[in-house]
């Protein structure tokens, strides 16, 4: 059963990779990378059960966190063009400009 699970995960990884390579829009690629990270987490979890090494599950958790940070950074760059201006800065800038 673990073998079937890992095969399914590998096939899904291939599909996500294909989307990341082909993806016409930026959001396709971001979604593909996010999905690929999720599949890596799952693959590590399946491997941990396959080889009876439960300490690998900690790594899977770290991957999930890192994946989240990376996707948030990418989305922040796409929507506002930089990392350091917060929404408050934008509102202040809009308020100052009419004067």
């Amino acid at each position: 059963m673990f073998i079937a699970a890992s095969l399914a995960i590998l096939i899904t990884m291939g599909l996500a990779l294909a989307r990341a390579l082909a993806g016409p829009t930026t959001y396709d690629r971001i979604a593909a990378v996010n999905m690929f990270g999720t599949k890596t987490v799952l693959l590590i979890a399946v491997l941990a059960f396959l080889s009876d090494r439960n300490d690998l599950l900690d790594i899977a958790l770290v991957y999930a966190l890192i994946n989240f940070i990376g996707v948030v950074a990418a989305l922040k760059l796409v929507t506002q063009g930089d990392f350091y201006s917060s929404d408050r800065d934008k509102r202040e800038a809009e308020k100052e400009e009419p004067e």
Partner: peptide, 17 residues
């Protein structure tokens, strides 16, 4: 360039796996 950065992410996830 943006797609390349995304693929870098996939590359290191693969090598980590």
């Amino acid at each position: 360039l943006f797609a390349i950065v995304m693929l870098y992410g996939i590359f290191s996830l693969l090598s980590a796996g």
